[in-house]
């Protein structure tokens, strides 16, 4: 074996090891983040965190019960707004669309998906907050719902397109109309995928902070209703983390752990739903 071949072998092995190291570093970041959060959050989390309201500024103790409920309300309202538009729009794209209209819708959805979240916040502010002259839970939910639309739309379309043609033809051959075929055969066949997509969309907006800053705003008490500002976990983490109080830092860690735990659980759940079993029985 000549020296040149040896050298080339060495370079090859060296570079390949290097790429392996890159992958290792990138993946270990996840475990670093998780470990740090579990360590810092785990030591600061307690029962009061889930059950109590924030204490007045400077006073130690208290919890984030209002932010947890606020986040849940925001996500619920956001889903009620974003999921139907994305889902039905996706059905249109996959089943009824004709050329030009469909590509315009697709383009708009991709554009919306790429809009920075802070700009979505500005939009929600001018659409909902300004006309009502009030920061509100609705405005926050509107912003989050907007971000759910493109994800739900494109993945509904994708999963519907993945349903084999013979299922449609079978239903049609039995005399079912087109919408009946869609409602009772195509959508049920793709429901795992669509459900996954909705869950992932939910997980994504659950951690969004920027669009809530000037829509749902924040609140140190229970929100008085849908038309009133509300606290939310991500905004609380932000406010507490940049504050100068030691006890607020502790609570920011606890909130971070709760939020990340929730998001990762939804993600893992969604991905197992998708991977377990094939949505459509293969013949």
């Amino acid at each position: 074996m000549s020296a040149r071949v040896k050298w080339r072998r060495f370079v090859s092995n060296f570079m390949l090891t290097l790429t392996g190291l890159c992958a290792l570093v990138c993946v270990s970041v996840l475990f670093l983040i998780l470990g740090y959060l579990v360590f810092n959050g785990g030591t600061s989390i307690n029962w009061a965190f889930f059950t109590q309201l924030p204490k007045p500024v400077g006073e130690a103790g208290g919890g984030m019960a209002n932010a947890i409920v606020g986040s849940a309300k925001l996500l619920l309202a956001a889903s009620l707004f974003g999921v139907p538009i994305g889902f039905l729009g996706g059905i249109y794209l996959a089943e009824f669309s004709g050329g030009a209209v469909a590509s315009v819708v697709r383009y708009a959805a991709d554009l919306l998906n790429g809009v920075p979240s802070i700009v979505i916040g500005i939009f929600a502010y001018s659409m909902v907050v300004l006309p009502f002259r009030h920061f509100s839970t609705f405005a926050g939910a509107f912003a989050l719902g907007l971000m759910m639309i493109p994800i739900t739309l494109r993945s509904t379309e994708e999963f519907l397109n993945g349903v084999p043609r013979y299922l449609r033809e079978g239903a049609m051959a039995l005399g079912a109309s087109k919408w009946k075929t869609i409602a009772s055969v195509v959508v049920p066949a793709a429901y795992r995928g669509i459900l996954t997509a909705i869950l992932l969309a939910l997980a994504r907006v659950a951690g969004e902070t920027a669009p809530l800053l000037f829509t749902a705003f924040g609140n140190r008490y229970w929100s008085q209703g849908w038309g009133q500002p509300t606290a939310s976990l991500p905004v609380m983490i932000f406010t507490y983390a940049v504050s100068p109080y030691e006890d607020w830092h502790r609570q920011a860690w606890a909130a971070g752990l709760v939020l990340l735990g929730l998001i990762l659980i939804i993600n893992i759940l969604a991905r197992t739903i998708l991977s377990r079993g094939i949505a459509v029985p293969r013949s």
Binding site: G207, A241, A252
Partner: peptide
């Protein structure tokens, strides 16, 4: 890596 992409930005900030 996909999970890493799902970590919200406020956590990275924290």
């Amino acid at each position: 890596i996909d999970l890493l992409a799902a970590v919200p930005s406020v956590i990275y900030g924290l």
